[in-house]
Design a protein around this nucleic acid. Structure first.
Length: 575
DNA sequence: GCCGTTTTCGGCCCGACTGTTTTCAGTCG
């Protein structure tokens, strides 16, 4: 049983406990579910190695939940959960994920109308049977119906940040231009630069919130107004994304920004810290015993009064950053302006849209000093992969462009290739060809579901090749589409270090591969990283921002990312 | 059900909005 399945069961138990009216059990189960869902190491393995004791050492897991975990790991089932399900046999995850539906409403609907799933719920509403229930009315029927429609369209939808961020920047821009708005910023998971987000949280400072709310709810991109108040409104955009706008007075802006940036877990810890110091922390500020605001205008002031330095948003996940901040151990994260090179770029020689020179000019504009052209090798037919004759020809072209660019525009173009790793770990270009390139990246593009042993052996074998400098998009995951390769990642890290093979952070918004958690493991193991755009178009260099943010979320420092080095030093650090 | 710089017992983050109420429960973040 995978962590994911265990997390789902704990999540469902949390909802069941909520139905029973339990106040704190839901939170305990939910916390455990969240932790296990985000855990990289296999829970079964942890149990095998350390027994029940090891499970109980995990945060949020005590004797009771640990014993349930053991039952799940050993038998794949949990009697307690089965009992709950028998008592109220409903499609609980889906029903409670509908906007406006929580444990209590799901329970009433089952007990009074026998509703167990989304179809039955929709039918009952259409028959106007829900409005007569205690606590429901015509408006709640409409609201739930709306939620069902949204659910069907977005199937529980999260949006890939890199594909929607510019929409938010537009809205931000519009809000900024209002003279009733003093300050405005994007908060929430978008500010923490999570790979995907459920909604967008805007925060503004204003003394005329009514006017700002009127504007916000009547923007042309708004499809539906969920709620509208003087400090908080929620709308759904035509693209299906929900957006919140919160408005606070200027002296509370920092506190509100801190609070609405989250994460929830990070905030719970901060609030508890405040309590221990005799303070109260809410979105309006940090208050002492006499209810006087002692911080809140800036985010930094809040952290400072709690005895902490400002923690970068990308780290705020309650994954050790608060302890690190307290002990002065916060990493000096790689910065958004630190990259000097980009070592995975495609051109119209294969599946890219632009010529070599166009890509070089765009890279220069993006502030880079060197790039590598790395088109696909021959077996990748879908991308019109290059054979050795074509590659020779391209190399000549690169030299030609490079000679003019280097002197006239101050950017160096390296010759490279994205060589395909075949099923058995061999490469589709000979070593005597590979050794001619300035830089070689190897990547998997097929056979994604080999056994863990085979897949690990395949990657390791490529990394032992002395011509391979970089492992491109190492896990091959595509967000919401393809799971990461099943590999022994610890082994990959060991071999990366042993062979000096660099691990790539591919910045393409749908890839972000390596992803944050894997990056953190790589950093802990002192492996070298590189952040590339994987640009297929001259407009793609802004992808780098998303790769950098992923690296920051993985606690990577400048020294861990070798394309922050100037060209000469960078070249010397290769195999 | 979890947890410990007040605590092995008794706390557990806290405020906004909505809809159905007639002062509040449920939901959300």
């Amino acid at each position: 049983m995978k962590n994911y399945d265990i997390a789902r069961i704990l999540h469902e138990i949390a909802i069941y406990e909520g139905m029973k009216g339990e106040k704190f059990k839901p939170r305990a189960y939910e916390k455990a579910a969240l932790y296990i869902g985000s855990l990289n190491d296999d829970l079964g393995t942890i149990y095998k190695n350390g027994g029940v004791k090891a499970l109980m050492e995990l945060p949020g897991i005590g004797r009771n939940i640990a014993e349930k975990l053991v039952e799940l790991i050993q038998t794949g089932e949990l009697a307690y959960y089965e009992e709950l399900k028998k008592e109220i046999p409903v499609d609980i995850t889906i029903l409670s994920s509908i906007e406006g539906m929580g444990p209590k409403k799901v329970k009433v609907l089952y007990e009074k109308l026998g509703i167990t799933n989304i179809e039955e719920l929709e039918k009952s509403i259409r028959e106007k049977r829900v409005r007569d229930l205690q606590g429901f009315g015509e408006k709640s029927e409409k609201k739930i119906l709306n939620g069902i429609e949204f659910f069907k369209k977005s199937h529980g939808g999260r949006f890939i940040l890199g594909l929607v961020l510019n929409t938010f920047e537009d809205i931000l821009h519009q809000l900024k231009s209002l003279d009733t708005v003093k300050n405005v910023q994007l908060a929430g998971s978008a500010r923490r630069m999570k790979q995907s987000i459920g909604d967008a949280d805007f925060l503004a400072a204003s003394y005329k919130p009514d006017k700002v709310m009127d504007f916000f709810t009547s923007m042309p991109e708004v499809a539906h107004i969920h709620t509208k108040g003087t400090t908080k409104s929620t709308v759904r955009l035509k693209s299906g994304i929900n957006c919140d706008l919160r408005i606070v007075p200027e002296e509370s802006f920092g506190a509100a920004l801190q609070y609405f940036t989250g994460s929830k877990q990070h905030n719970v810890v901060l609030r508890t810290m405040a309590l221990h110091k005799g303070y109260k922390l809410n979105e309006y500020g940090l208050y002492d015993k006499r209810n006087r605001q002692i911080a809140g205008r800036t985010e930094e002031s809040i952290y400072l009064k709690l005895g902490l330095p400002l923690i970068p948003p990308e780290l705020r996940e309650d994954k050790g950053e608060i302890e690190a901040a307290r002990d002065g151990r916060l990493p000096k994260l790689v910065g958004y302006d630190d990259l000097k090179g980009d070592l995975q770029i495609h051109t119209d020689w294969t599946d890219g849209n632009n010529a070599i020179i166009e890509m070089a000019q765009a890279a220069k504009k993006a502030g880079l000093e060197y790039i590598a052209i790395t088109d696909h090798s021959r077996t990748l037919e879908i991308a019109r992969g290059l054979n050795k004759e074509k590659l020779k020809e391209q190399e000549k072209e690169i030299k030609k462009v490079n000679d003019t660019m280097k002197h006239n525009e101050g950017i160096t173009i390296l010759s490279g290739v994205e060589v395909n790793i075949l099923k058995d770990g061999s490469l589709d270009l000979d070593n005597n060809i590979l050794k001619e390139f300035d830089i070689v990246g190897a990547a998997v593009h097929s056979y994604f579901s080999l056994s863990k042993e085979e897949q690990t052996k395949r990657l390791v074998s490529a990394m032992y090749n002395t011509n391979i400098d970089i492992l491109f998009h190492p896990t091959c995951r595509v967000i919401q589409k393809r799971q990461p390769l099943d590999v022994d990642f610890d082994k990959i890290l060991d071999v990366s270090k042993e062979t000096n093979t660099i691990l790539e952070v591919d910045s393409s918004p749908e890839r972000l591969d390596l992803q944050d958690e894997y990056i953190q493991h790589a950093v802990e193991n002192k492996c070298k990283l590189i952040i590339d755009s994987d640009a297929h178009d001259k407009s793609h260099f802004h992808f780098l921002k998303f790769g950098i943010s992923q690296a920051r979320r993985g606690w990577a420092e400048k020294k861990d990312v070798i394309n922050t080095l100037p060209l000469e030093k960078f070249l010397k650090s290769l195999k």
